[in-house]
Every structure is written in C-alpha cells, then in structure tokens.
Amino acid sequence: MNLYYYASPATFYPLAGKLIPWFAGLAVVLGAIGLYISFFIAPTDFQQGEGYRIIFIHVPAAWMSMFIYLVMAFWSAIGLAFNTRLSFLIARALAPTGAMFTFIALWTGAFWGKPMWGTWWVWDARLTSELILLFLYVGYMALQAAIDAPRRADRAGALLNLVGVINIPIIYFSVKWWNTLHQGSSVSLTGAPSMAMIMLWGMLVMALAAWMYTIAVSLARSRILILERERQTEWARAQLEGQA
C-alpha cells in the first residue's frame, strides 16, 4: 500500500468516503469551540465594541480563500507534471469552496466596514485583492464549465490556475502600491490595535474548523466528480447501482 495506490480514482473513491465523516466531525467540533471562544471568552473590544467579533469569521475566511487557491495550484501543477487525473479533480473540487470563502471574506468585510468606517465598501488593499481573487476563482470555474471534454477542461483549468498563482503576488503588490498612493483607508481589518492572545486563538481555531470543513466538502465533491467521469467503468457502475 503506497500513495500511488490511492492515486487511482477507483481506490480513492472509497477512501474518501471513509474520511469524510472524520473531517466533517472535526469541523463541527472545532467550529463549536471556535465560536464559543469568539462569542463568550474573547473580551469586548474597548474601541470597536461587539462588532469586532466578525473578524472571527472574516479573517479565517480570508486566510482560507488564499490558501485554497494555493492548494489548487499545487494539485494543478502535480496534475500537469505527472499526468494524474485525480489531482485535477481535487483542484476542481476545491474551487467552489475557495470561491465561497472569498465571498464570505468580502461579505463580512462589508459588514465590518459599515459600523467601523461608516460605509459598506472601502477600496482597502486587502478587500480589493480579495475581490480580484474572487474574479480569479470565477474565471477558473467558468472556463471549466465551458469545456465539455474532461481532459481539456482539466488541463486548461490547471494552466489558468498556475497563471493566476504566478500573478497573485504581483496583483497584491500592485493593489497595495495603488492603495498607498491614493491614500485610501489605512485601517486594516487584521491589524486591530490591541489583539489579545485569546482573539488570536479564536481565529486559529476557526481557521482550523474552516480547513476541516474544506477537506470534507471537497472530498465529497471529488467523489461526485469521480463517479461522473468514471461512470462507464465497472466499479463506478456497481457503486451507482448500489446507491440506487
């Protein structure tokens, strides 16, 4: 038994099925602990009041949104280099979750901005980069949706993903540069002036919960993608009949 063994969709499918409940369970437990810390243990901020508690959602979502894009790029690169179909499927399964976290980061950013800055949206460097990241996710998913041939969809998506990942640092740098030149808001969501240790812990636990959730959801999604791709093979037919 080695890693190559699980690189085949037919063996990965049951393995993923076994792993999903574990990751889902971890996500629920960690999420509960994280929420408890964020709402009951973490003290009220003397400057920002109770409203600041949204960072316990916002910051982990923003972290995950970027992290997932990197993980996708990793699997895309592996797929292109070693021609493994499963890698492309994992990248593809991760994309909607990544886009969701990006959207949550933007949404909570807007909610945070209203009481703090008195406006729903500021062209803050981080929020702007996050918006462009959302565009990158949308582009990736739109390209995959437009291509019917699975082999081409996999590879084209992977290439776009890699171009995006090369570009992200440049985009981030350029947006930051643009932001400082235009003297936009210098208040940043993460750089809260008095970050207590317990707040950091709350964010970390929430990020871990988000991570476990991502793994569980994308494993489930890749199982569906595998069945869809392999539906003409013996084992996939047996699976589908077993479920019906």
Binding site: I132, F135, L136, V138, G139, A142, L143, A146, L160, V163, G164, N167, I170, I171, F173, S174, V175, W177, W178, L181
Partner: peptide, 20 residues
C-alpha cells in the same frame, strides 16, 4: 466573454502601473 472573465483580473497590475 469568457476570455474577458479569465484575463481581465490578470490585467490589474498593468492597469494600475499604466494609469498610475
């Protein structure tokens, strides 16, 4: 339309540096 969706985000640095 698709090409616009894919490529426009990648053009951001060019726009910022160029117009800047």
């Amino acid at each position: 339309v698709l090409i616009t969706l894919l490529i426009l985000p990648l053009y951001v640095p060019v726009l910022i540096f160029g117009a800047g």
